[in-house]
């Protein structure tokens, strides 16, 4: 498939020097419970604590962390769905918090839960998403079957309502939705959690393929060590909102004198990812 420009934004208008993602001291706090005293200060929970990292163009980084470590909050901040409490974030040179519309043209996302209008078909859901990025009917009629075919979704089921599709199929449609708009930054928030082994493998293979064919930059938040090692150039460990480290898997193992990524994660955080693997991330 040929390289497609992001909708409504010329790639030439993106600063050529800017990295794909540049995050500096990014901080996010949420209210935690009620005030201790009436009119007293609220207790705040720091979900992301001065997170700093840079992602180069075309790079894929994986962020590992337990439930509640701040992975999803990071993805939501970069998706312009949250407002920061400190620090900054830039996507291809655009400020995420003051230029959100420019950022939105460059970014798309797949989350752990494939959220759709369940009564609508895959075709209708994808058309709806595509219109928001300026795609006309003539374009979507051609592009939707093509992209669904690429993710391995059977065209015969194009008009079945989403509620009649398996979880794996729904996640493939979610991937197709993200790629339909030709994002240059793809945010993947546990895209394979809860999938059967075969669907998981298919989705992982597709992510790897898309990254090279599509020349996209990828931030992958995951519980799955193998997935991270297989797909990412660098691996970060996020623990209680603090990014402890972000480096290639081999460097990470060397730093913590570990044979495996699991052992390195345990050495870095004192926790195991297996403990909460079955849970759904809700940080």
């Amino acid at each position: 498939m040929s390289r497609i420009e992001p909708r409504n934004l010329h790639l030439t208008q993106i600063s050529p020097e800017a990295p794909a993602v540049e995050v500096r001291d990014l901080t996010k706090r949420f209210r935690k419970g009620k005030r201790i005293r009436r009119f007293g200060p609220r207790i705040m929970n720091t979900v992301l604590d001065r997170v700093t990292f840079t992602v180069e163009r075309g790079e894929c980084i994986a962020i590992l962390g337990q439930n509640g470590s701040g992975k999803s909050t990071l993805v939501r901040l970069l998706s312009t769905l949250l407002i920061n409490d400190g620090g900054s974030a830039h996507v291809f040179g655009f400020d995420v918090f003051t230029e959100p519309r420019n950022v939105r043209r460059l970014v798309n996302r797949v989350s752990v839960e494939a959220s759709f209008f369940k009564k609508m078909s895959a075709n209708e859901n994808l058309s709806y998403a595509a219109r928001f990025y300026g795609m006309r009917s003539e374009e979507t009629k051609r592009a939707i079957p093509e992209i669904l075919d690429r993710v391995g979704f059977p065209n015969a089921r194009l008009n079945d309502s989403m509620e009649h599709l398996s979880r794996g199929m729904q996640q493939k449609v979610a991937l197709a939705r993200a790629l339909l708009t030709s994002p240059v930054l793809l945010l993947l928030d546990e895209p394979t959690t809860g999938l059967d082994p075969r669907s998981k493998l298919e989705v992982q293979e597709f992510i790897a393929k898309v990254r090279f064919e599509h020349d996209a930059t990828v931030i992958l938040c995951t519980h799955d060590m193998n997935e991270a090692e297989k797909l990412a150039d660098r691996i970060g460990i996020l623990d209680e909102g603090v990014l402890l480290v972000l480096e290639p898997a081999e460097d990470l193992k060397r730093r913590y004198e570990a044979d495996t990524l699991e052992a390195a994660f345990f050495a870095a955080t004192g926790k195991s990812l297996e403990e909460d693997e079955a849970e759904v991330d809700d940080d």
Binding site: R104, F116, F132
Partner: peptide, 14 residues
Amino acid sequence: WEGTIEYTFMAPLS
């Protein structure tokens, strides 16, 4: 309710 709100609100539509 459907869970699509985040996808809609992160789209570049005014």
